[in-house]
Amino acid sequence: MCRIGFRCIKMALRELSSLERFLGLKKPNKYSTQGGKKVPVLQNNNGPALIGLVTIASHLVHEAKRPELLGNSAEQRAIVQQWLEHRVTRLDNCSKEEVKVILKELNQYLEDKVYLAGNVFTLADILMYYGIHHIVVELAVQEKELYLNVTRWFDHIQHYPGIRNHLPPVVVLRNRVYPSSHH
């Protein structure tokens, strides 16, 4: 359940329209929301409505004929899907204490990777960036250094052409302010 209710609804719809702009889809789609959790719904003229952020985002990627954003191989597709699911099941529900676990795990995962699926930029980077923005914005300088790989990845994605759209940029220092050993 979304703890921050209204903000979440607006965010989900805003990130879908940001994604549309990034994908270069000319005709903006019509969205509504459904149920207590306000899940996004895409009204479709030639078929049943599509429900769910990940489902709709994946559909838009196909519509824009950019299947590589969902991964180029079965392995990559599975990893992309896994992070998309992680976004809507863990990140969107997490308590303050869980945020730390999520950041710690993501930080370790990104230790040897440029993007979430390895060396290629995918939809997983886009939706994780949109979903984690409100958390990274609040991090103190020390915390940004503690989660250095997350911060590096985040900065990379926010500078990726056409991604940031509705979100304010987050300042990331390229040089450490605090010594790397933690006392």
Partner: peptide
């Protein structure tokens, strides 16, 4: 993944059920 490598890639319909199941 197991279905994908067996020639049954994800569709909008399967994605939607999997997302609903997880969330």
């Amino acid at each position: 993944y197991l279905y994908d490598i067996s020639g049954q890639p994800a569709t909008d319909a399967t994605n939607q059920w999997l997302e609903w199941e997880a969330t």
